[in-house]
């Protein structure tokens, strides 16, 4: 699948719902999509058709004419789209100052852009292991002291 442009990855709520429906139920025309989605929200068939057209323009859907109506089908899988979105999110970290990145709209448990150094990571793991061992030792000593009871 080709790389989508960043602005094409920005999806509105209706666009996400339409995509999710097509992933779940396969190719559909605007009327069928409207039948499925109009219960949860007040949207017209035209609004649904516009959302489908936008998704088509963004490269996320393909369409073919069947009789008088277009039938739309996803051009990307959910997993592919998620992967591209993650790539775009990771870019925000890698290009922080110019694009607003890590200091902007998101925070990651471990910095997505930071290149981990094997030696440093090993050293940190050893440090943590050493502390864990020391804590376990201290705890076992404490338990032994308690089981012996108070000294007289």
């Amino acid at each position: 699948m080709s790389q989508l442009r960043l602005k094409n990855l920005a999806l509105g709520e209706l666009e996400r719902d339409v995509l999710a429906l097509l992933w779940e139920q396969g190719p559909m025309n605007p009327g069928a999509v409207h039948d499925q989605l109009h219960r949860g929200r007040k949207v017209s068939v035209n609004t649904i058709a516009s959302a489908l057209k936008r998704l088509c323009d963004k490269g996320l859907l393909a369409r073919m004419k069947v009789s008088h109506a277009y039938v739309y089908r996803p051009r990307v899988t959910r997993s592919d789209l998620e992967r591209q979105l993650i790539g775009a999110v990771a870019d925000q970290f890698g290009d922080s100052a110019e694009r607003g990145g890590g200091g902007g709209l998101l925070a990651a448990f471990v910095d997505l852009a930071e290149q981990q150094g094997e030696d440093t990571l090993r050293r940190l793991e050893a440090l943590v292991a050493e502390r864990l061992a020391a804590t376990a030792d201290a705890e076992s000593k404490g338990e032994n002291d308690t089981s012996r009871g108070p000294s007289r």
Partner: peptide
């Protein structure tokens, strides 16, 4: 700390790509 190193280890590239000189990990350290 243990969780940080565990997740950082998962995010490490394969052995052929890993930096042997430890230039990274600044913030993690």
């Amino acid at each position: 700390s243990q969780a940080l190193t565990e997740v950082a280890r998962l995010r490490m590239p394969g052995p052929q790509l890993a930096s042997a000189h430890g230039v990274g990990c600044g913030a993690l350290e």
